[in-house]
Design a protein around this nucleic acid. Structure first.
Length: 409
RNA sequence: GCGAUCGUAGCUCAGUUGGUUAGAGCGCCGGUUUGUGGUACCGGAGGUCGGGGGUUCGAGACCCCUCGAUCGCCCCA
């Protein structure tokens, strides 16, 4: 066992019911995304390191300690994408996609983050992703969230609520941040060690600290609402009323912040309700879909100011919530009980598949056990090719069309 | 990065206070039975007990290191 290669820590080989659930998530996403007219894009899995460090922020955990960065043979520093947004922004700028603005796009695929693996958290993980770039209006946020909400419903995921907040525009956010730093610095010695560190690096994060010592001071911390400019407040109001009109249930989460530097205005996460079935399945990973508005991102990459909103959701986490997905059933199995008739079986299968039915052959191993193998796979129809030209057809009475397709038997 | 639990056949697990050739069910392979049949029975393959080192007359069981998974923290999807 030890002689064979092992999978890299934090990677997974997905098979069987898990793979079916994974595929179900992706297929549902593809279907829903078309309903909202999001266009499909394919992105490189790696970028120049600076794409991520400039977009996401040097001081974030993602950039400072979780990226898979390496030097290629030409001496360039490259990084396996830890998220989609930065790469999409880069593509938007380098391809002149401004001409398509407002651009609604969707993609999915693997991401890489050097983290401690846990249930629902992997080093190579997968996300579905949706972005609206070049749209400054709150309607874009509403559209994006309406799609997310419908997607979760179509996946059959229950007990999940949209937690919504606004971080205000750039000035609001800075003023709020300064006030928070002042507030917490006054009681610095009484904060948890983690939060004392956050005070310098990312004071907003103190707000959702789980440590009781911090929570005492979070309650009376300055609220973003006090710092919101009139425009920012109007923007947020438009988002919430739009969500109401779209029938998307949401709840205000004043301490919800996002970890990456580029967020402005709307920030949101879909989180399982406490004590819900979903919360139990996810372990300590709570957010299944998160995102927000990132109006400042394009500028950090050297582009002109470009408003944008987006979200991403972990496919593995969604797959854990969609329940068992069985393998698709088989229409026809041809049992070759006489090896002389293999060619005949191949011909039958070619025809049945050309007609759009699923089918496979059982021809190996003990002849007397071939039929049993076919039965165990429970297809709709079993065609048994027996010695001396004989044959039998058995079926579960559910589908005449398969029988018609092999009516020569 | 920090703390904790766990790691025995392909899968799910059992292995008494450390004691002879490490077991079961399922799955897989072969055979008998049945013969329009998902039955029953017989047999077989498959494990250096995650890996390495140590304690001991003797370790799957104890100790150390390491790898991995899981749980909590951090962070995030």
């Amino acid at each position: 066992m030890s002689k064979t290669p092992q999978a890299i820590r934090g990677t997974q080989d997905i098979f069987g019911p898990d793979a079916e659930a994974f595929a179900f998530v992706v297929e549902t996403f593809e279907r829903v995304r078309k309903l909202y007219r999001f266009r499909r894009v394919e992105m490189p899995v790696f970028e120049k390191t600076e794409v991520f460090s400039r977009a996401i922020g040097e001081t974030t955990d993602v950039v400072s300690k979780e990226m898979y960065s390496f030097e290629d043979r030409g001496g360039d520093s490259l990084t396996l994408r830890p998220e989609f947004t930065a790469g999409i922004a880069r593509a938007y700028l380098s391809n002149g996609w401004q001409q398509h603005a407002p651009l609604k796009i969707a993609t999915h695929g693997p991401l890489f983050r050097y983290e401690r693996p846990q249930k629902g958290r992997y080093r190579q993980f997968h996300q579905i992703d949706a972005e609206i770039i070049g749209a400054a209006e709150p309607q874009a946020d509403v559209e994006l969230l309406a799609m997310a909400d419908q997607l979760l419903k179509e996946l059959g995921i229950e007990g999940v609520t949209l937690h919504l907040n606004t971080l205000g525009d750039g000035d609001s956010r800075e003023a709020w941040r300064a006030a928070l730093v002042e507030h917490f610095r006054a009681v610095k010695d009484e904060l948890s060690a983690d939060s004392q560190e956050r005070l310098e690096k990312n004071p907003l994060r103190i707000l959702d600290s789980k440590d009781r010592r911090d929570q005492r001071f979070v309650a009376d911390a300055p609220k973003i609402d006090q710092f919101l400019s009139d425009d920012a407040r109007a923007f947020f109001d438009a988002v919430t009323s739009g969500l109401d009109a779209a029938g998307v249930k949401w709840t205000r989460a004043t301490s919800l912040v996002r970890g990456l530097d580029y967020y402005r205005h709307t920030a949101f996460e879909f989180i399982p309700d406490e004590v819900s079935e979903a919360a139990g399945k996810l372990g300590s990973q709570s957010t299944i879909l998160g995102g927000g508005r990132y109006d400042g991102l394009m500028e950090s990459l050297g582009g002109s100011p470009t408003p944008a909103v987006g979200w991403a959701a972990g496919i593995e986490r969604l797959a854990m919530l969609v329940g068992e997905k069985g393998e698709p059933e088989c229409d026809l199995i041809v049992v070759v009980e006489d090896d002389e008739r293999i060619s005949e079986a191949i011909g039958v299968l070619k025809d049945i598949r050309a007609a759009g039915f699923t089918g496979e052959m059982v021809s190996g191993g003990s002849r007397k056990k071939r039929y049993d193998k076919a039965v165990k796979r429970s297809p709709k129809v079993i065609l048994s090719l027996q010695p001396e030209g004989g044959h039998s057809v058995s079926h579960d009475n559910s589908d005449e069309s398969v029988l018609k397709a092999i009516r020569q038997y």
